[in-house]
Design a protein around this nucleic acid. Structure first.
Lengths: 196, 196, 196, 196
DNA sequence: CATGAATGAGGATTCATTCAT
DNA sequence: GATGAATGAATCCTCATTCAT
């Protein structure tokens, strides 16, 4: 009934191992394309039984959510870094490409981005908010510097990116994704130029 | 096994009424957010029994497909019209806005666009192809006129639009959708200016 | 609710035609191997609608029963004829072979014989009784003439024949069926010789 | 999807109990005459939920097949034994009677034999092949010893036996079945005498 | 009389979740 | 803590039969 309280006390070594194995297996399962992988399948891949999933995660959805949250955590470290090293518009450009490249490398990431960005599922609320805030930071910095058109929210941009990053199935995907991302970026600069 | 031969002879009045009611109910069901509405539920909404669904549509998926096909048919009449009345780039701009406005008015259309554009589900293959071709026509005309950047396929643009049009849940959606669509359009023109 | 009272008054010409067409279609459907052909399918083959089936036959089973009864009627004319022309044992031998040959020629007949003989389904009660009586007549005549072992009922022999005649699917069926029928017949004579 | 790996490790005690209960319930269900007993019904009889059937058996048909396979396994141990103790023709005679007696004792066995022998259903392919081979062994041994007429396949004989063993519904079944089995056997010997 | 659209009670199967071992 | 067997609601689809047109 009550799933493991992660904060209360540190997990025993084997329990932690199981938790990690489950997350890895779930990531793997989604990466293989089965965003609707069954719990039995995920448990099997992790080398545990289904019961163990329910010891670590409230429900199947909670497991999925955690997988996606971790992916997003990794990505959302980037903007701060990029803003330290580059001009705001360049930082934005690089972040957009980063998302595309990650999607190109990892189908799991692509599915994650699509799910997070292009849906309203409450399962991904946290991840979505985090991503939107990361983009907001970049957009606002760019707008403040007069390099990027203002008036576009991270959430909105996210939508478009979700559509783009979800494309991975089609032939020649990567190039097209890079191209349309560049178009979006040009559009964002174009507006600023007009305004300025 | 083989459902209703639509071509053989016109449906009886009551049969047509039921068919329309089913399509309306299905549209309604998807509109209410249940893209995975159950056949029983759709039948109930249409005021018929499940068997009637299967008299009119091969499978549940065939019904869904038909709903989406109708929405798309309506939209895809537009490009030809627009190209007759406007310069290619203006026709493209108007078509992009048309998609957004339709999504603003009809949640069903928004869901349809998202499903058609942002997935690879074979269920929507026909609808997707039709939409991609509509955009291709506009993009090619624009590129031929030197007003639009070349090298972007309708399919790719569709992806981004799918993400955008699916946004309807959030507050202030319409304005943001119009804005980012404008950004995309600007990006497409921007490239052409560069090239030219 | 009440199906056509066949005796009350003669059918209109077109009604009779429909009834015949339905029986022919049903025979054809079973002959094609689908002993479980659906009513829609049978109606389609007969060039009528399902409603017409229910005007002529109480239920689907009643239609099947009638088909089988007709097949059996044809066969059961034979014993009388054979007993007029041949010695009782020869008449029996010929009748057994007649069943096999009919099954070889008509898959419908084979299915009919199997259904009638090798099951206890009340649907075929009448047909079964008729066949059993036909065999009884031959067996009794043979036993009375001292040429055939007594103590075997037509119903029992029918069972074995049903199994044999149902074999038509396998390769080289006809020869094996003829052979084992001959064995059965030899067994019936063999017993008589022993007894005599 | 893949049911229970029987080989991997022995079932837990309760699981084995359920598996046995399911097989017993299925046997019972068929015995009651419902060869088409529903999964819900079988589950109910076994005191489990439907899901448990699908944990143990791939499909409904797989369960049926297993029931029949077990019956056949029991029977097919006999021929080897009989050939060790008796002359080939006597072994054959006893095996034929064994089938009849088993059918007399167990309606389940009778139905099993009828299903296996008198149909071509792929569900019973394995069982049928096994039975046919058992008979082939006896027939060939008998033919080699000059005691039994050659040229009859086990498969063919099986058909006739299926018809006979399926008869259990009628009054005085057992005696008639024994008698006609004897006739078949006499026929098989009769041929050999002729040939020799 | 004929049509064929509609009915709706099944029936097989799936899978997230629970809980006895 | 872990196991994995059991649960059972949910879901799609079939098809004999009825009845409005």
């Amino acid at each position: 009934m009550e799933a493991l309280l992660q904060s209360s006390r540190p997990l025993r070594a084997d329990a932690r191992r199981n938790r990690e194995a489950l997350l890895a297996a779930a990531r793997e399962a989604f990466l293989t394309g089965e965003a609707d992988a069954h719990v039995e399948e995920i448990a099997r891949r992790a080398g545990v039984a289904v019961g163990t999933i329910y010891r670590h995660f409230e429900t199947r959805e909670a497991l999925i959510e955690e997988v996606y949250r971790q992916e997003v955590d990794d990505l959302c470290a980037a903007p701060t870094e990029l803003l330290n090293r580059h001009a705001p518009d360049e930082a934005l450009r690089r972040f957009l490409l980063l998302l595309v490249e990650h999607s190109a490398v990892s189908k799991g990431m692509a599915v994650a981005l699509e799910s997070i960005m292009a849906t309203d599922s409450p399962v991904f609320d946290d991840a979505r908010t985090q991503m939107a805030q990361a983009l907001d930071r970049l957009l606002e910095a760019g707008a403040a510097a007069g390099a990027i058109r203002g008036g576009v929210s991270g959430r909105t941009l996210l939508r478009a990116l979700g559509g783009i990053c979800g494309m991975r199935a089609t032939e020649g995907w990567r190039d097209e994704a890079v191209r349309i991302t560049a178009i979006l970026f040009d559009g964002l600069r174009f507006g600023a130029q007009k305004a300025g």
